[in-house]
Simulated scan of single mutants.
Amino acid sequence: MTKAAEIPPDLYGRPRRDRFWVAVNAAFNGVERVRRLRTLRLPGLPEPVDRTLRLVVTEVRPVADDVVSLRLAAPDGRLLPGWQPGCHLDVLLPSGRRRQYSLCGDPADRRSYRIAVRRLPDGAGGSVEVHQALVEGAFVGVQGPRNAFPFLTRETYLFIAGGIGITPILPMVTAAHRLGADWHLIYTGRTRASLPFLDELPPGRITVRTDDEHGVPDCAELLDGAAPGAAVYCCGPAPMIDGVRAAFRPGGPSTLHFERFAPAPIVGGRPFEVELARSGRVLQVPADRSALDVIRDELPTVAYSCRQGFCGTCRVAVTAGDVDRRAPSDPEAGSMLPCVSRATGGRVTLDL
């Protein structure tokens, strides 16, 4: 081979680089720059953190009429985040629904969580899905635990539970019993067969009042057993909670704590309009309905969960109008929780 076949030098006498390898090197450098830009974090912007736990259903057990208890654990058996009486989980169902269920097991058990769900055929579908889809061996995502119903250390307690409302109350009763506190539980329901976990309650200091045996209880009578200065914890159907709240007379250190499984009735509501920015539709919200209920008539797939203003699932951006924020978790300018908050003027426009 002659010298003519070799790559001639450049004008400065330096060997010329092979054009093929120059192109390969440039392509590699371009890919590397794109990769670095994708991983670049802007100053002051936190990285999103997915706090969802993927758990497996290890036990499904009937505990009352139409009520099942589910035990959830990590697939690898690792320890789960700790919790206190009153905590709940956000359960992410296979359909995409998000539902809140109180933890009703033992906080000392870090290997599993226990929840209980009553099947409501005429509900929004979450409880039916739990009963049908969450079988033993099924996987489910959860977030939490979170506590919107904290248990305070006191010397005296009165617990009032209605039906499935026993779920957050049961760990509280157990904790009060272990503390050696003076406590009493009034457990109400339609029948004894409808009362979950009746066999797990500590013996004594429990009054069971069922509608078929004693009639519908009077809420003022339920509070008669409260000792002076007692912390009263109540959970159950909305009418029972409203009745207990109306009958409760605070005095001295006495306090009332309650948790709803359904949204509170709208008080002081005024009619207003909701404009859906994406379609231009204008919906009329009457004084006795929430914006979320009206929006769901138009958009059945809109996300929602607790309907009480603390989970934030239904939060939506506000593009015009002022908002009467009716929940502590709805302080953000530019957005709204339509499950509880309302418009202060005649119309609010939402990014829907």
Results as ranks from 00 to 15, higher is better:
Thr2Pro: 10
Ala4Lys: 12
Glu6Gly: 08
Ile7Gln: 11
Arg17Asp: 15
Asp18Phe: 11
Ala23Lys: 11
Val31Lys: 03
Val31Ile: 14
Val34Ser: 09
Arg38Gln: 11
Thr39Leu: 11
Leu42Phe: 12
Leu53Met: 10
Leu55Ile: 03
Thr58Glu: 01
Arg61Lys: 12
Val68Pro: 00
Val68Cys: 01
Leu70His: 00
Arg71Asn: 01
Asp76Gly: 05
Pro81His: 10
Gly82Arg: 12
Gly82Tyr: 10
Gln84Ile: 05
His88Met: 03
Leu92Glu: 07
Arg114Ser: 09
Ile115Pro: 00
Leu120Gly: 02
Gly125Glu: 15
Phe139Thr: 15
Val140Lys: 01
Ala148Glu: 14
Pro150Lys: 07
Arg154Phe: 06
Thr156Ile: 12
Phe159Tyr: 09
Gly162Ile: 02
Leu170Asn: 01
Met172Ala: 02
Thr174Asn: 09
Ala181Tyr: 04
Arg190Asp: 04
Ala193Ile: 12
Leu195Pro: 01
Pro202Gly: 07
Val208Gln: 03
Gly215Gln: 09
Gly225Ser: 12
Ala226Gln: 04
Ala227Pro: 05
Pro228Leu: 14
Gly229Thr: 12
Ala230Gly: 04
Val244Cys: 09
Arg245Ser: 13
Phe248Lys: 05
Phe248Trp: 15
Pro250Ala: 08
Pro253Ser: 15
Pro253Arg: 15
Ser254Thr: 14
Phe261Ile: 08
Ala262Arg: 10
Arg270Cys: 06
Phe272Ala: 04
Val274Leu: 14
Leu276Asp: 11
Ala277Thr: 13
Val282Glu: 04
Val282Gly: 05
Pro286Leu: 02
Ile295Pro: 01
Ser305Trp: 00
Arg307Cys: 04
Gly309Asp: 03
Phe310His: 08
Cys311Lys: 04
Gly312Trp: 03
Asp322Trp: 03
Asp322Arg: 12
Ala327Lys: 02
Ala327Phe: 10
Cys339Arg: 03
Val340Ser: 07
Ser341Leu: 08
Ser341Glu: 07
Gly345Gln: 11
Leu352Ala: 13
